[in-house]
Simulated scan of single mutants.
Amino acid sequence: MTMFYEPYMESCARCENTFMTRIERTRGNCWWIACAIGCIFFFPLCYWLCCASSKDTKHFCPSCGTLLAIRKGGC
């Protein structure tokens, strides 16, 4: 597993190509927990939840679509 927020060079074991990964940012469990706590107790500080670094980043092979790594965001 890598700890990258942005695409990086990787080789895919399935299609055996080297390429720049394709990323998707999604809201994981930590994001929802932080959102609930932030909205209840720290409403003015909830702007952090809009940042890309607060979301999970999934890295995929652009050729075959294999999930290569997940970088958990936030917590």
Rank of each mutant, 00 (worst) to 15 (best):
43 F>R: 02
32 W>E: 02
32 W>Q: 01
40 I>Y: 07
30 C>L: 15
42 F>L: 09
44 P>M: 05
25 R>S: 10
17 N>Q: 08
37 I>T: 04
17 N>R: 07
45 L>Y: 11
50 C>H: 14
25 R>E: 13
38 G>P: 00
52 A>Y: 14
16 E>T: 11
16 E>R: 11
33 I>D: 00
27 R>N: 09
55 K>P: 05
49 L>I: 05
57 T>N: 07
45 L>K: 04
35 C>E: 13
30 C>P: 07
26 T>Q: 07
19 F>S: 02
36 A>M: 08
46 C>P: 03
45 L>W: 12
28 G>M: 05
34 A>K: 08
24 E>N: 05
41 F>L: 08
24 E>Q: 10
55 K>R: 14
24 E>G: 03
32 W>C: 00
48 W>I: 15
53 S>D: 15
33 I>Y: 00
55 K>G: 06
35 C>D: 13
43 F>E: 04
20 M>Y: 11
42 F>K: 01
34 A>F: 08
56 D>K: 03
30 C>D: 15
41 F>V: 06
46 C>Q: 06
32 W>H: 02
28 G>H: 03
34 A>V: 10
16 E>V: 12
39 C>H: 14
19 F>A: 03
53 S>I: 15
43 F>Y: 08
57 T>Y: 07
27 R>V: 06
49 L>F: 04
37 I>R: 00
21 T>K: 03
48 W>V: 15
18 T>S: 07
31 W>R: 00
46 C>K: 04
17 N>H: 05
16 E>M: 10
41 F>E: 02
19 F>W: 09
36 A>T: 09
45 L>T: 08
39 C>I: 14
34 A>Y: 10
27 R>D: 08
45 L>S: 09
54 S>H: 14
46 C>W: 03
52 A>C: 13
48 W>C: 12
28 G>C: 02
20 M>H: 07
20 M>S: 11
28 G>I: 07
18 T>F: 08
47 Y>F: 14
51 C>R: 15
26 T>N: 06
40 I>E: 04
31 W>N: 00
35 C>V: 14
45 L>D: 08
21 T>F: 07
55 K>M: 13
44 P>G: 03
25 R>T: 13
16 E>W: 09
19 F>L: 07
47 Y>V: 12
43 F>W: 11
40 I>N: 03
50 C>P: 06
22 R>T: 11
42 F>C: 05
57 T>D: 11
25 R>C: 10
23 I>S: 04
31 W>M: 01
24 E>A: 07
17 N>P: 00
45 L>A: 11
31 W>P: 00
30 C>N: 15
